[in-house]
């Protein structure tokens, strides 16, 4: 792919090397075309979504797919926001996501500290339980969880969502934190213990603040998962006013069968927060996703 680099090419006879570099140049050009085409394919459906969210029903059918109307129908956004419960769903998504993320990262930090820095017998077994937890399909727990929450009167209560999100995201969160905690220097603990500092103080005052950056990465990954979660909300929540954006949007869109502008605007509102977070923090997200799966 990068045959024009010097060492191998330098060994070839001059005319051969020239032939190869032309060939490599064409090959490289072709690679760029393929890579950029793939990027366009990834973006195209989203651009189309943006376009039809700004059209009225008639324009969706009469105008070409990638043409905007003269008058952009921003009122689609106003209408879906004011008519339906979108604002309510939005607020529910925000607070449920925030509460679950905070709880998950905090609990995972405690466990990761104990798993990596402290000495105890059951450590490998507990680590194993958390790691296997990642492979367990949500559907294999859904019926008992539904019945359990019913008994606890937590059906149609958002606490059931926060509890489930936290439990199911602990494994991946611990996995992201693990590498960072392992790499912390021993000297920190030694110095802290020498100074007569207890474990709690050491963890809360010294270790936790040091792990801020990896905790933020883990929090972002959690945020994406929780914001997009569907099956638990769909199963545990009945009242419309308690639903999150994912499920709310699903129901809301159902009412607007033919009104593409309204559907487009609703979908745009539901994906916009994630897109904004991505534009602001893309490096963190990229790093977090890589860390969560590579350091297995």
């Amino acid at each position: 792919m990068t045959t024009s680099s010097s060492p191998p090419a330098a060994r070839l006879r001059p005319n051969e090397a020239a032939g190869r570099s032309v060939f490599a140049g064409v090959g490289r050009g072709l690679l760029y075309v393929v890579l950029i085409a793939a990027a366009v394919l990834q973006l195209l459906p989203l651009v189309w979504l943006l376009f039809f969210s700004l059209k009225n029903s008639q324009e969706v059918f009469s105008l070409p797919a990638f043409a905007l109307p003269k008058h952009l129908r921003w009122e689609n956004y106003e209408n879906v926001w004011s008519q339906g419960n979108i604002g309510r769903y939005f607020f529910n998504s925000v607070w449920i996501t925030a509460a679950s993320v905070a709880l998950t990262v905090l609990l995972a930090s405690f466990v990761t500290f104990a798993l990596t820095r402290m000495r105890w017998k059951l450590r490998p077994a507990v680590l194993g339980l958390f790691m296997i937890g990642m492979m367990i399909p949500v559907h294999s727990t859904l019926i008992p969880l539904f019945l359990l929450f019913q008994k606890l009167r937590l059906i149609d209560n958002q606490a059931s969502l926060i509890v489930s999100y936290t439990a199911f995201n602990l494994p991946i969160t611990i996995m992201i934190l693990l590498g960072f905690y392992v790499a912390l220097p021993r000297e920190i603990e030694e110095a802290a213990v020498m100074d007569g500092c207890g474990v709690n103080r050491m963890f809360l005052r010294i270790v936790l603040p040091m792990t801020g950056s990896v905790a933020v990465t883990a929090a972002i990954i959690n945020m994406i998962y929780n914001w997009n979660e569907f099956i638990f909300v769909n199963t545990f929540i009945n009242s419309d006013s308690l639903k999150t954006l994912t499920v709310g949007v699903q129901n809301f869109v159902g009412q607007y069968m033919a009104n593409w502008g309204a559907i487009g605007a609703t979908l745009m509102i539901s994906i916009l927060p994630i897109l904004i977070v991505f534009f602001l923090l893309s490096n963190r997200i990229v790093e977090g996703i890589a860390a969560g799966s590579v350091k297995g």
């Binding site: 405690f110 820095r117 000495r119 105890w120 937890g133 294999s140 602990l170 474990v199």
Partner: peptide, 30 residues
């Protein structure tokens, strides 16, 4: 200090009980 059982239990149990209660017990029930 680093093998204080009480502290380990305090740090591990909340998350572990949640994992057992929401993931592992339901599998057995399923």
């Amino acid at each position: 200090v680093m093998s204080n059982k009480g502290v380990i239990a305090l740090y591990v149990l909340p998350a572990l009980l949640l994992l057992l209660g929401v993931v592992y017990v339901p599998i057995v029930l399923t």
